[in-house]
Design a protein around this nucleic acid. Structure first.
Lengths: 127, 127
DNA sequence: CATAAGCTATACCCTAACGTTAAGGTCAAG
DNA sequence: CTTGACCTTAACGTTAGGGTATAGCTTATG
């Protein structure tokens, strides 16, 4: 199938697919008119990448996961380790964002939000 | 004062200050040797930007905030609105990340993590 | 005074993951 | 024959600076 169909079925853009191909995450053969032709396996990989990306994995990590996906002699602990690292990163990131959000919320509550210049948010940033 | 001193006092790099200047968030005059010379007000603005960045505001938003900071006839509601938008963005982002993290955690729990190929994480991504 | 260390300048390349033109080739329908 | 939908490559834009190279200026030391 051609790129447009793969993109539609996998729920990603044509550009994303070409990008994954540039980075050697997937492969295609060419038709006589130079159009890319994808196998069902390639479509599956694009779907795989799409899901992994949505779970927060980077392209680089997707690359590792695809290697494991392809490897029938993989050890599940290897996959698990990648996931654990990502999970820890996510937890840390959530923590940081929560701190920020709480600070911001606190400032917003203190701001009168009227048509006068006095503003605790500006004051805090300028302090 | 020169760029290095400003950078030290504001806790940012020289490069960042030049960057802010390129984007017209701050200004400097030049000494006879072409070195940048900053006023105390410029230092205050760099500090202001640094704090705002740490609160999650983009450079673009910092630019708006600085305009309000400079404007003695600002209305606090304008500042507040920017902060509210950012706060909502942060909340949404935290929500998304939490969902991801929970999904990942669930998958990790289901994975045996041994030396056999069977892996629920891979299965989920390939499903 | 000469030299080295340290600060400053401009300028270009790099990041992540594509988005977005630009300019053009291919193919089926009307 | 033209239109429109689809495909191609190439290359710049995005975010917020980091890193590096080269060169000029300043200051401290021998």
């Amino acid at each position: 199938m051609k790129i447009g169909e793969v993109a539609l079925k996998a729920g990603v853009t044509n550009r994303a697919i070409r990008h994954y191909e540039e980075l050697n995450l997937i492969k295609s053969r060419r038709l006589s008119n130079n159009y890319r032709e994808y196998s069902k396996e390639a479509l599956d990989k694009v779907k795989f990448i799409s899901r992994a990306r949505k779970l927060g994995f980077s392209i680089d990590e997707c690359s590792s996961l695809i290697s494991l996906f392809d490897n029938q002699r993989r050890k599940s602990v290897e996959v698990r380790n990648i996931a654990i690292i990502k999970n820890d990163e996510l937890k840390r990131q959530i923590h940081e964002l929560k701190d920020l959000q709480k600070s911001l919320e606190w400032l917003i509550k203190k701001c009168p939000g009227n048509d006068k210049p006095n503003c605790p948010i500006i004051d805090e940033l300028a302090s």
